[in-house]
Design a protein around this nucleic acid. Structure first.
Lengths: 159, 159
DNA sequence: GATATGTTACTCGGATATTTAATGTCCGAGTCTACTGGG
DNA sequence: CCCAGTAGACTCGGACATTAAATATCCGAGTAACATATC
């Protein structure tokens, strides 16, 4: 799985602590964890395309959450970066085997495909059940200093 | 996820229908699904290293299951091909952030890491609960012709 | 007929290319800000 | 003092390198089977 998933999740979580009317530039979000700014920018673009973030150009521009943290699941972020296709991609090799027929959809009938799909479904369900609000609440409970620290670090130095 | 996982699972399942005292060469297993023989061989080597298959050189040589189908889980095969590391690799970027400390294992404390790990755990549990024997039984129930067809196709043409 | 032996063909195993995807970098288009000059 | 106009700097967005990994291939080492010759 791409490293960008980790960056995207941490960045989105950090954005939950920023006031709604303020956008944070990619450079500042990257500096937070000493990440390559241009490459993080690339990942954030994917989040914008997925409708998770909105972007603003020009001075005072940057990124902010497109909807409330309660409405953004961890799965949303993962899918935005990794793409919607499943990790196990059934290529239907049964069709090439003896008794394989062209008209059959082996992604549906193949027992192995079903097993892998089922496992991946539980994985997705798990991630779809956690929102950014859940993560934020857990962090605030365990590390009360984190929100203020994050907000201060992402605060506009020009203000 | 690597395409080799699909090949390995189908191949191992096919081997459950072969008599225990007979080994099947990689070339024959590859011909079954029209796969590139040398590359499938490479994947099978990984299964041998993982203790799932045993290999025999020379004439009448080939691969066979190292233990009974009841003792081989789908997860075993996946891990043999993909490696033991988790799909989501936490790089502990929190350490680079404000308040990050060198001594802390952020793979344990980070809420995001915990969430991803938890989801992956359910995925693994699902795959660990299915053995090759389970798959074989399901296939035999739904497609009674499959076992004979497979055994015949993998039968030694020289016999 | 049985046995020892040399030859042959077969199979795996790892070393070596090739292709694809992930990672990383750079520069231009657009936009908002802030300043400047005039009314 | 207020307002319109303009220059400037900031930010994203996508196009362009670079690196790592998956995919695919090839040839040699070892081994078991078979044929052969001998006892």
């Amino acid at each position: 799985m791409s490293e960008g998933v980790e960056w995207a999740l941490h960045t989105c979580l950090n954005l939950t602590w920023v006031e709604d009317d303020r956008a944070v530039p990619a450079a500042m979000l990257a500096a937070f964890y000493e990440l390559p700014p241009a490459y993080l920018n690339k990942q954030l673009q994917a989040l914008v395309r997925a409708g998770i973030l909105t972007s603003t150009s020009g001075p005072r521009g940057g990124f902010r959450l497109a909807r409330r943290p309660e409405e953004i699941t961890v799965l949303d972020v993962v899918v935005a970066i990794e793409g919607p296709q499943e990790a196990f991609a059934c290529t239907e090799i049964l069709r090439q085997g003896p008794g394989g027929e062209p008209g059959v959809d082996y992604r549906k009938t193949c027992v192995i495909s079903q097993t892998m799909r089922q496992a991946e479904l539980t994985w997705r369900r798990e991630l779809a059940g956690r929102t950014l609000a859940d993560l934020r609440a857990t962090v605030e409970e365990r590390f009360p200093a984190a929100p203020g620290q994050t907000r201060r670090r992402l605060a506009d130095a020009r203000a």
